[in-house]
């Protein structure tokens, strides 16, 4: 069965690109446009991996990450944070909150797909 990936980002063009890219790589993809919607889908869609944008209205990426990691039943979900802000503090903040990977925008498609593949291979 195909692995499930959830994209949480409010920037429609980036979502389009990621959706296309991941679908081409054979993942089952769902999109949430903000943090709240993202958290709901983590429960109902039960993704194996979440691609999480940091800067979003209302509930931001850090907060979503923290809430996923709070729930024992979601511990296995891999989290990849995507952000246009790439300062060290921000990266380490993301990782310390339990993200598995922190990718700075703009990213290379092949690298990203490869990294996602690597993360999901272990499960």
């Amino acid at each position: 069965m195909a692995k499930k990936v959830l994209i949480v980002d409010d920037e429609p063009n980036i979502v389009t690109a990621l959706e296309y890219l991941l679908a081409q790589s054979g993942y089952q993809v769902k999109v949430a446009q903000n943090g709240e919607e993202g958290l709901e889908l983590v429960g109902s869609f039960a993704p194996d991996l979440v691609l999480l944008d940091v800067m979003m209205p209302r509930v931001n990426g850090y907060e979503v990450c923290r809430r996923i990691r709070e729930r024992p039943e979601w511990q296995h979900v891999k989290i990849v944070m995507l952000s246009a802000r790439g300062r060290e503090v921000e990266v380490s903040k993301g990782l310390s909150l339990g993200a598995d990977l922190y990718v700075v925008k703009p990213f290379s498609n092949t690298e990203l797909v490869a990294q996602i593949g690597g993360l999901l291979a272990g499960t």
Binding site: E11, N13, I14, Y20, K105, F107, S108, N109
Partner: peptide
């Protein structure tokens, strides 16, 4: 920091789509 963010967001889309278009013949 804000300007950087603002520059990177469109750049992300541009890079992602141009890579798709360049590498994916399908």
């Amino acid at each position: 920091s804000t300007v950087t963010h603002e520059l990177r967001t469109p750049l992300t889309s541009i890079r992602a789509f141009s890579e798709i278009l360049a590498r994916d013949p399908k």
